[in-house]
Amino acid sequence: MKNILINLLKSILFLVLLIIILELITIMLLPKYSIKKYGFQNTVKYEILQEKPDTIDVIYLGDSLVYSSISPMEIWNQYGYTGFDCAKAAESIANTRKHLEVAIKHEHPKVVFFEANVLYRDPNKRPWYYRLKSEVFSVFAITKYHDNWKQIGIKKSKIISNVNKGYVYMTKLSKYKPIRKINNPKRLRPIPEGNIEELKKIVKICKDNNIKLVLINNPSNKSWIYSKHYATKKIAKEYNLEYIDLNLADDLKIDWTRETKDKGDHLNHSGAKKVSAYIGEYLFSLGLLEDHRNDNKYQEWNRAYKYYSEN
């Protein structure tokens, strides 16, 4: 029994020391100014804080549909607009609002896209393992930033911490035959209690900061249904917001037999390229943003694009 106890204590001590060592190395691999200003946990939790302050034009808020559909680097390459996916898997609207609050302390975006699918997620029914995964990730964040060691020696202000800008690159293909959905304009998907209050807060934050808020539905043949579309349309009208439903965009033409990574739920990289091109064109049509591709202040974006495109 005594031996078991000693071995157990030794194991715990080994793991605790390991976590400390890994956190210390992670700190070395992340931008120092973010750690200093926001602390280690926030810098890891809200990756947008690793960006240079006041350099992001567009924020894409929401859940996994965002980070698998919108690649800010594609938009950068075509239009020179900077953007960041502030999105987490199965995210609740309250956390999305918090994410926005944190982000706008650091950045001053002109446009924010909000994935409307989040509106219909009951915050009380979020599977426990999503939370566990993000908690575990914050302890082992080094696994995401480990390759930053290659930038050791580069001037601090030129370090690229996040090449994909929140987007998750997936080339996997899982063929899918889209399901035909019932189109009944009278059927509106109910929104869980409290979510409208959170949406109101998001609307207010954007209004107070002079940000154009756009509701969006990224393509998903599994998560999306007409009743969500009509309900979101009604809300958009009520709050005077623009609403883009990419599931009904005739000119987008997602090929679900080739462009999904998980049988119609999320897009793969090929699909994401189409969506990003669509959003880039939309942003261009707004005429609110500047092309930064030749701006010296944004040269790390060109460098990041090089890494991004090589991979």
């Binding site: 390991l18 890994l22 080094i142 696994t143 480990h146 390759d147 690159y169």
Partner: peptide, 17 residues
């Protein structure tokens, strides 16, 4: 052990890219 673990985690070729 720590050295080997750190080398694997930091210099491992996994994740983005």
């Amino acid at each position: 052990y720590y050295a080997l673990i750190v080398i694997i985690i930091v210099f491992g070729a996994y994740g983005i890219g």
